[in-house]
Design a protein around this nucleic acid. Sequence first.
DNA 1: CTGTTAGCGCTTTCAG
DNA 2: CTGAAAGCGCTAACAG
Lengths: 337, 337
Amino acid sequence: MLGITIRDVAKRAGVGVGTVSRVLNNHPSVSAATRETVETAIAQLEYAPSPSARRLSSGKTYTIAALVPFFTLPSFVERLQGVVTALEDTQYDVVIYNVETLERRDHYLKTLARRQRFDGLLVVSLPLSDREAAFLLHSGLPTVLIDSDQPAFRRVVIDDVFGGRLATRHLISLGHERIAYVSDQLGAPFGFVAGKHRLEGYCQALSQANIPIHPDYHAAAAWHGVPEARQAASHLLKLSPRPTAIFASSDVQAMGVMQAAQDAGLRVPDDLSVIGYDDIYLAEYMHLTTIHQPLFTSGVEGVALLLDLIQQPDQPSSAVSLDVRLVTRQTTAPPAV
Amino acid sequence: MLGITIRDVAKRAGVGVGTVSRVLNNHPSVSAATRETVETAIAQLEYAPSPSARRLSSGKTYTIAALVPFFTLPSFVERLQGVVTALEDTQYDVVIYNVETLERRDHYLKTLARRQRFDGLLVVSLPLSDREAAFLLHSGLPTVLIDSDQPAFRRVVIDDVFGGRLATRHLISLGHERIAYVSDQLGAPFGFVAGKHRLEGYCQALSQANIPIHPDYHAAAAWHGVPEARQAASHLLKLSPRPTAIFASSDVQAMGVMQAAQDAGLRVPDDLSVIGYDDIYLAEYMHLTTIHQPLFTSGVEGVALLLDLIQQPDQPSSAVSLDVRLVTRQTTAPPAV
DNA sequence: CTGTTAGCGCTTTCAG
DNA sequence: CTGAAAGCGCTAACAG
């Protein structure tokens, strides 16, 4: 099995290497009989083609790269799982690059596009500056964006403004007026825009209901984690008048908010309503009311776009928009009277 | 930049391609002056060597494969993050294979070892049968096991029997005697042994404390998820006498247990103590008392072993054992009197 | 439909 | 210390 080459197979089958290559690649112009012979030889020899040789010769790598920020955050993991799963039945491998700092992002963006390391690139949830976008485009590496909205690319997008509106409207419909919002740093340092968009939706919903927007009711947590959101929410809960509901811009942050509520001796949803965003796997366990967005599916769709783009590189950019929806569980209720 | 080969660099620098290759690979026998010249040429031409060509020629792929079950379960993700992070500053890429069915496991095990697709393989948390072990060993692919204890391999192991003892002892020391255990199916279908080992430790601790082991107090959940553990725990909580404490064999399952407690109107830790296992990121948020095991670190250590093994393939098998420890939070307390 | 041949771009002896 | 040359194993014309 080791050291067996296409030449051995050719000899054994009594054909030329070209023919073996053709059956390997399902080329139509091989007679059934010949194909049969060759396949037998392949089986007998337990031959497996060398990926390296195939890559060099064909110029294709059968590998795509996925650039993912904060690998461990549940929402990114669920997207990534969609990617990995969608690629399972294809001939493509996926190599993962985890981005936790700006340096790494820049480093990867710069190096991944060089030479024929990959047939395609999937950028997950990472906003691209115009410069980076131009660079990638110019590099010729087929690239698809998931959860990132650069018009020059094929991409999978989610309407976070709408999601933010949905969340806030739900709270309003319950009778809340003092509604606070916990987000990340609104873009710094990676330029994530989801938090900003959800804020926008939040403001829209408030305005439409003629509820004044209270800047103090927006707290930006230092990071995307639980403890940071907890701290931000604690601050909010000390305000007077105290908000009766908090919209957290992610489910993970909603967990921090619920912790803060507990710290303050407030019961959810009796004393405080909490709504999250994402609907990660654990949200159900938390009984968390949240905005569901198709995380897994976004990965699957991204792969579909990319494979298509690899086949036909010169396609116009376009966006596939995925829907969000409200999932009502047990952390929201009408405000106490 | 595209289409620039080593030959162009050689011409530009006025040297042979061999010399360029040598500076590319930091071969010692290149004069400082020549190296300088070549490096300048490389920079001017913005040359980047073709990985495909390099692979074919050298027989090395600079890529390792990671086989991971249930990609999305937090404990596996944290191990994987250790792997990805440890590989960041090396020249190795990692491609991920997610295993959710026996078929996929067998498929991957069989195909990954064929030909020079990878320089090494990392098997995470997947027990290997003797047949599979023999197959991998025979294939010659350098393989390291993380959280799996096949003596024929280099591996990173965790003493789950000890961890189980630790958890149970903690409960006993608090005064509990009616201690139940929630696990997965004890091995089926993948043969995971962690649940079994933790059970063993549980039994040991009980015996040492002269507490009789009550078979009814062990419930095997249908899967590793929250709802399954919830159901298993619900069953336990209907027993009489009812257990005063439950040891869940993972933090995710502990969440299900806490849900079941809530369902039954029981307060944690007042009416029921709960201890988990793993200490995943969210455990702290849950205020969950648990057994900490070094998940991230196990990935890092596994990579170290593998890179070492790739350098020197003929090393004896050996195990690196990582420590577990008790982390006391707020879900355990003395039983109500 | 199929055999032959020329590379793909790099690494690595082998001389010198 | 360095240049020339022989592959690595496969794909893709090009003949036939």
